[in-house]
Amino acid sequence: MRITPNILINNLLNNLYKNTERMGKLQNQIASGKRLTKPSDDPGGVLRSLFLRTTLGELDQFEKNVDDSKSWLSVTQNALNELVSVFRQAKTIAIQGSNDPSSDVRSALSYQVGGLIETALNAGNTAYDGKYIFAGSKTQDLPFTSLVEGITYRGDRSKMTREVALSQTVITNLHGDEVFQPELYHQVVAGVRVSDITAPLNEVLPASAVGAGNFTINLAGVAPLVIGPIDPTVDSLTDLMNSINAAFAASNSPAEAEIVDNRLVITSTLQGTEGVMTITDGVAGGILTRLGIADNDGKILGENILPPAEKGVFDTLIDLRNALEGRALAENKLMGLSDGSQSVGLIPSDLITFTA
């Protein structure tokens, strides 16, 4: 092939053009601080860049969610600490009132309790970033209002969640009912404590052995749940608990079973009369009878139904004030206040970590 001067000149011009284009691209990168200014620069690199940008955006949002959750929980902890302080002061006032029957002293103490009620009300209406922390999902509405008949909760029982990592959420709130109101859950506790929750029931339960059998749990709004067959020669208390919870989960029942102090405990998570459950043993002298839950006729034993808490935070303080004002209230109610984070048992045990 013959190489003419024109071919050499064209090759030189082409190389100069490419170098000039490359220099321009580098100058644009230097000026903009970006390696990719348009998709055609590097299609694969652009896709990677977009993915990384999206990931960084998600991580930034997760970080904001974590910071917001920490701030929300910090405000919640401060409000709970305020309640602990209220009950410690109420404890002191109750002791003073029970030791000094003087009307003048009790009148002054009653006035102090009125201030504690106001402090507790303000704690219940604590807000963070314009949202009421104890209102459930009704964060724009004042959760507690003072009426003639007492203090009323107007929030709901919703749980608020924040996404803190991919497909990972945390609950960040406590609603007013679980902090300030009495628990009304219906709970059944076995009268018999077993020595080994993993051993076959026939080995750890009293009375004569029986064969495999069923029992039925009835909950409001849920079709009767038949549990079993439970074979006491093989199944342990843990197996029994798992069978009950499996039935609850399959039917979306508002209840749960657990083992506490080697006893079977079944709890309805609905409150009040809606949460009442009935349990019937399938055979005479069956598993429930041997666990001390049912009588010989298979009906639930009344003494195994735990009563609800008597009073909520506000009712307890109002009762104390009324007692100091001379209204009818047994003196042992005055002395029932305990100092510490579980004041009168009204702050749920799972909140102790906040108030310790």
Score class of each variant (00 low, 15 high):
residue 102 S to A: 07
residue 342 Q to A: 15
residue 294 A to G: 03
residue 201 L to M: 05
residue 196 D to V: 05
residue 328 A to P: 06
residue 303 E to I: 13
residue 160 M to L: 15
residue 67 D to P: 03
residue 153 Y to D: 09
residue 182 P to L: 10
residue 190 A to L: 05
residue 292 G to F: 05
residue 282 G to C: 10
residue 170 V to C: 02
residue 315 D to S: 15
residue 76 T to F: 06
residue 213 G to P: 01
residue 102 S to M: 04
residue 289 T to Y: 12
residue 189 V to K: 12
residue 157 R to Q: 14
residue 343 S to L: 13
residue 340 G to F: 10
residue 193 R to K: 15
residue 84 V to W: 06
residue 15 N to I: 02
residue 108 A to D: 10
residue 276 V to G: 07
residue 105 V to Y: 00
residue 151 I to R: 06
residue 290 R to M: 08
residue 284 A to T: 14
residue 133 I to E: 08
residue 154 R to N: 15
residue 136 G to C: 06
residue 313 V to Y: 14
residue 184 L to P: 08
residue 289 T to G: 09
residue 165 A to R: 11
residue 343 S to D: 11
residue 199 A to E: 01
residue 227 I to C: 03
residue 225 L to R: 04
residue 14 N to Y: 01
residue 312 G to Y: 14
residue 215 F to G: 02
residue 9 I to M: 02
residue 258 E to G: 14
residue 355 T to I: 08
residue 8 L to K: 06
residue 270 L to Q: 13
residue 128 Y to V: 05
residue 184 L to E: 14
residue 31 A to I: 10
residue 96 Q to P: 02
residue 122 N to P: 04
residue 11 N to Y: 00
residue 121 L to W: 09
residue 143 P to L: 11
residue 76 T to G: 13
residue 77 Q to I: 12
residue 229 P to N: 05
residue 64 K to C: 08
residue 61 Q to L: 13
residue 166 L to E: 09
residue 226 V to T: 13
residue 16 L to Q: 10
residue 336 G to P: 09
residue 154 R to E: 15
residue 207 A to K: 07
residue 325 E to V: 05
residue 260 V to G: 07
residue 336 G to Y: 10
residue 346 L to A: 11
residue 61 Q to D: 12
residue 107 S to I: 09
residue 158 S to R: 09
residue 38 K to Q: 11
residue 128 Y to N: 14
residue 310 E to L: 11
residue 161 T to V: 08
residue 250 A to T: 01
residue 242 N to M: 01
residue 298 G to L: 01
residue 314 F to C: 09
residue 34 K to R: 03
residue 20 T to K: 05
residue 211 G to K: 02
residue 185 Y to K: 15
residue 267 T to L: 09
residue 216 T to N: 01
residue 66 V to C: 05
residue 304 N to K: 13
residue 30 I to T: 07
residue 331 E to L: 12
residue 270 L to R: 13
residue 12 L to F: 04
residue 279 I to L: 07
residue 207 A to W: 04
residue 77 Q to K: 14
residue 299 K to H: 10
residue 66 V to L: 09
residue 222 V to E: 00
residue 230 I to N: 00
residue 347 I to V: 14
residue 201 L to D: 05
residue 69 S to C: 07
residue 264 L to H: 07
residue 152 T to M: 15
residue 298 G to A: 00
residue 42 D to W: 03
residue 218 N to P: 05
residue 268 S to V: 04
residue 180 F to V: 02
residue 191 G to E: 05
residue 342 Q to M: 12
residue 2 R to S: 00
residue 307 P to E: 11
residue 243 S to D: 10
residue 281 D to H: 08
residue 355 T to F: 11
residue 342 Q to F: 12
residue 293 I to F: 09
residue 92 T to V: 13
residue 67 D to Q: 13
residue 39 P to I: 09
residue 70 K to L: 14
residue 55 T to Q: 07
residue 268 S to A: 06
residue 288 L to Q: 11
residue 130 G to W: 09
residue 356 A to I: 15
residue 6 N to F: 08
residue 13 L to A: 02
residue 32 S to G: 00
residue 283 V to C: 11
residue 160 M to P: 08
residue 4 T to A: 00
residue 188 V to M: 03
residue 254 P to V: 02
residue 331 E to H: 07
residue 269 T to H: 06
residue 47 L to E: 00
residue 80 L to V: 03
residue 255 A to V: 03
residue 230 I to L: 06
residue 63 E to G: 10
residue 197 I to Y: 04
residue 60 D to V: 05
residue 285 G to S: 03
residue 136 G to A: 05
residue 349 S to R: 13
residue 35 R to L: 01
residue 302 G to R: 11
